[in-house]
């Protein structure tokens, strides 16, 4: 059952990822990306990363993708500006090189010794366990992350403001 679920969601994730990079209209891309993030969240649950799966849906789908859709509609690109002219030699080279990179990565994975998963208790990956870790061992990075978000917020306001 678990295996079947993994292959189903993995297939959905890869198929929607390919749709994201091939659609001409950015709105279609964004909506396929939302589906991709949902199926990835399901894969995270299979890895017993419950908290991260919820965060994935809330932050990625709920915040980031809504922001992206908002910007796409704000820009309101015309048919000509959607751009992406015919495939060129350079683009073809990009695809070929990425394919070679994929083969190399898959080859690297192959040499990994087959590893059995350690058994983890049922609290593994819950907000309680992760919160305990974030507020003890990783307290400084956690606080710096909040500073980073503050900086990004101020930066976004300054950048998007109308010049006078």
């Amino acid at each position: 059952m678990e295996t079947m679920l993994f292959y189903f969601f993995a297939f959905v994730a890869v198929a929607t990822a390919l749709l994201v990079i091939t659609r001409r209209n950015p709105i279609h891309s964004a909506l396929w990306l939302v589906l991709c993030f949902f199926s990835l969240a399901a894969v995270y649950v299979l890895l017993s990363a419950h908290f991260i799966a919820i965060i994935q849906i809330m932050v990625y789908v709920g915040a980031i993708m809504v922001l992206v859709l908002f910007v796409i509609m704000l820009l309101n690109l015309s048919e000509k500006e959607l751009g992406d002219a015919k495939p060129t030699v350079l683009k073809f080279c990009g695809v070929i090189l990425s394919g070679i990179f994929m083969v190399l990565l898959a080859d690297g994975v192959k040499v990994l010794a087959p590893q059995a998963a350690v058994s983890v208790d049922e609290k593994f990956g819950t907000a309680e366990m992760l919160g305990r870790l974030l507020f003890t061992d990783y307290l400084l990075p956690f606080e710096i992350a909040s500073l980073l978000l503050l900086t990004a917020m101020i930066g976004a306001v300054v950048l998007a403001k109308k010049r006078r």
């Binding site: 991260i52 965060i55 994935q56 932050v59 990625y60 915040a63 980031i64 922001l67 992206v68 910007v71 992350a145 980073l148 978000l149 900086t151 990004a152 917020m153 930066g155 976004a156 306001v157 950048l159 998007a160």
Partner: peptide
Amino acid sequence: ITVAAAEAAVGLA
């Protein structure tokens, strides 16, 4: 995910 959120805000701006 935190960095991705910050990147989304600044990048889209």
